[in-house]
């Protein structure tokens, strides 16, 4: 890691100001992506602005079926939330399988969503549940938020405050972990509601998280794993690396989707 200056922001306003004052400052929450990157000397911000102690970014609020999760909420907190578990256990299940216990007690939903790692778990949930990303400036719909590999709609000085969604009637998440990193080699989140079915895939797409129109169409007719039998997922635009070919990922998308549906229905 290169030498740097560290600031602990006391409020969102403070964080925005610190960010504006520095030339190449970076925001850090759980640091579970940024710190390893800095240790490998692949990133060298001269200023780090710590968001972890900002009160207004914390907390989980559930009102009816509407869930608001502060951006600074850790994965462990989401995984353990009884209120969320009552109406959306799939999200708790997702959070409980991010990384390992050490990662889960540091990593935050705001950080994960802002980073938009193509193999992160949360983007699949956000996209499938049509969640809203609430920032210090505006509210952004999930369909508009994820814009490519590590790219989001966030402006340079925009900070996520919370993630808000209405828990779907039925949802489920299943991921096949990368055997080494335990990131999603392929993860599928299915959400079924009166409005229809949304299916988001992470870990597989060359441009990051995406919705699978083929699977959505099949499940809209029949929300059952059997509806996906014989379906073929195209492997173009899927990632291919030493861990999995595009063809294998295409297979996993289908298998994980079936298992996610089974979870949603159980």
């Amino acid at each position: 890691m290169y030498a740097l200056n560290y600031h602990r922001a006391s409020s969102l306003e403070d964080a925005v100001k610190l960010l504006g004052d520095s030339e190449d400052g970076k925001l850090v929450a759980g640091g579970q992506t940024l710190i390893p990157t800095m240790k490998a000397r692949l990133a060298a911000p001269s200023v780090l602005i710590d968001l972890r102690h900002i009160q207004e970014l914390k907390g989980i609020t559930v009102s009816g079926r509407e869930v608001t999760i502060g951006a600074g909420t850790t994965h462990a907190e989401v995984a353990a939330s009884k209120e969320i578990a009552q109406i959306c256990p799939a999200l708790c299940h997702l959070a409980s399988h991010i990384g390992d216990p050490h990662v889960r007690h540091m990593g935050t939903i705001g950080g994960s969503v802002a980073n938009n790692d193509p193999a992160a778990d949360y983007p699949a949930a956000i996209l499938a549940m049509n969640a809203t990303v609430v920032t210090n400036r505006r509210e952004i719909a999930a369909d508009d938020f994820f814009q490519g590999l590590f790219e989001t709609a966030l402006e340079d000085d925009e900070i996520i405050k919370a993630v808000r969604f209405t828990a779907p009637a039925k949802c489920g998440y299943e991921k096949f972990p990368n055997p080494a990193s335990r990131y999603a080699l392929t993860g599928v989140f299915v959400a079924a509601d009166a409005d229809g079915v949304r299916v988001a895939v992470t870990g597989a797409g060359e441009e990051g998280v995406f919705r699978s129109s083929e699977i959505e169409a099949a499940l809209s007719k029949n929300f059952d794993a059997a509806a996906l039998d014989g379906l073929s997922i195209p492997s173009d635009n899927l990632m291919s690396d030493i861990h999995a070919s595009a063809e294998y990922r295409a297979n996993l998308i289908l298998v994980m989707a079936k298992r996610a549906v089974a979870r949603a229905k159980s």
Partner: peptide
């Protein structure tokens, strides 16, 4: 089942150079 040290055949770069890619 898990471990393989992988060099890129073209460039000779060590692709599995951390636990992100080398499964223990």
């Amino acid at each position: 089942l898990m471990e393989t040290c992988h060099y890129d055949p073209e460039t000779g770069q060590l692709v599995t150079a951390s636990y992100m890619d080398y499964q223990m």
